[in-house]
């Protein structure tokens, strides 16, 4: 039976949702699931982790030098407790991507990056070429599986579990060669297009730079980032950095709402990994409706105010 250890991600206050998603992936692998939480003053985070469905045990390693996620420090702690685990999983976030390969190298194995599906406990599906191909990857027999879990592919596990929490102290001292200075969160009130969970986008159908205000307004109501199609950028409604698509940004928010966007293949390339795509367009023949999860034919200038009212 597999014995799985998940490295938790958190911001010092609460558990990042990516951890709950890793748990779902671990459930698909099957076996005993433990979670390791590193940091200082992490009781509530550890309790949160222990509440995730099918988690057996949370190992909370509490030390001042672990409060910042310095890969070299965390990797040392993982290796100190890794014995006996068949799988070491982390989220495919910037934290997991920084940390897990360091662990894999020290364990002498290659890492499986971005698990999107589990075929068998040692066989996985993962995307390559920016998601343009999906491959099956098999970890050689006897090797520890070190992997990152592609967050967009998994739902968060429920918080109906009741695992135990075991608090430990750090096994190593802080490395001297790396010093944490600080974190500046992504500025501005509107989330960054690339990392936003929700994105509201406008196309040429929005009609003008002035009209784009309605897109911003709805986005702010939803706490969403704002994107645009190339047609809207070319028409000068919005700056180039808002472009979503082949020659713009490739994004994968949970919710993508496209207003007045026809859905040219060049645009769709940029949102093919989005969770749910909502399309609102006057033209019922627009190709966007062929890939939208929810479509609504109508005038965006009428629909957006209605949506805002309903969201109040």
């Amino acid at each position: 039976m597999s014995k799985i250890l998940i490295i938790a991600e958190h911001d010092g206050q609460s558990l990042n949702i990516s951890t709950a998603k890793c748990v779902t992936c671990a459930q698909a692998i099957g076996g005993n699931i433990d979670i390791a939480v590193f940091g200082s003053g992490i009781e509530t985070i550890a309790a949160e982790a222990a509440s995730l469905e099918s988690v057996a045990r949370v190992i909370a390693v509490d030390a001042e030098h672990l409060s910042a996620p310095i890969a070299a420090n965390w990797a040392n702690e993982v290796l100190a407790i890794a014995d006996g685990y068949s799988h070491l999983l982390g989220p495919s976030t910037t934290l997991g991507k920084d940390l897990m390969p360091r662990i894999a190298a020290l364990a002498g194995v290659n890492q499986v990056s971005d698990i999107m599906a589990v075929n068998a406990p040692t066989s996985f599906k993962r995307p390559i070429y920016a998601g343009n191909a999906i491959i099956d990857v098999e970890v050689p027999a006897g090797a520890t599986v070190v992997a990152t879990v592609r967050i967009a592919s998994w739902q968060a596990a429920a918080t109906t579990g009741g695992g135990s929490v075991e608090v430990r102290s750090a096994s190593s001292n802080a490395v001297k060669h790396t010093r944490y200075v600080g974190l500046k969160s992504g500025g501005g009130e509107r989330p960054d297009l690339q990392s936003a969970q929700r994105v509201v986008s406008g196309g040429r159908g929005v009609g003008s730079e002035e009209n784009f205000k309605v897109i911003y307004s709805l986005a702010d109501k939803l706490g969403a980032g704002v994107g645009a199609s190339r047609a809207a950028v070319d028409a000068g409604y919005v700056p180039n950095e808002m472009q979503v698509g082949q020659t713009g940004k490739i994004i994968s928010p949970d919710l993508y709402m496209a207003f007045g966007i026809s859905g040219a293949i060049q645009h769709v390339t940029g949102i093919k990994d989005a969770g749910t795509i909502v399309a609102i367009n006057k033209d019922s023949e627009s190709p966007i409706f062929e890939i939208a999860d929810i479509g609504l034919v109508g005038d965006l200038f009428k629909i957006i105010p209605e949506l805002e009212k309903l969201l109040d």
Binding site: Q246, A264, I265, Q266, T269, P287
Partner: peptide
């Protein structure tokens, strides 16, 4: 392709 944009792709 559906249209010229798709062809350009």
């Amino acid at each position: 392709p559906r249209d010229r944009l798709a062809s350009v792709y």
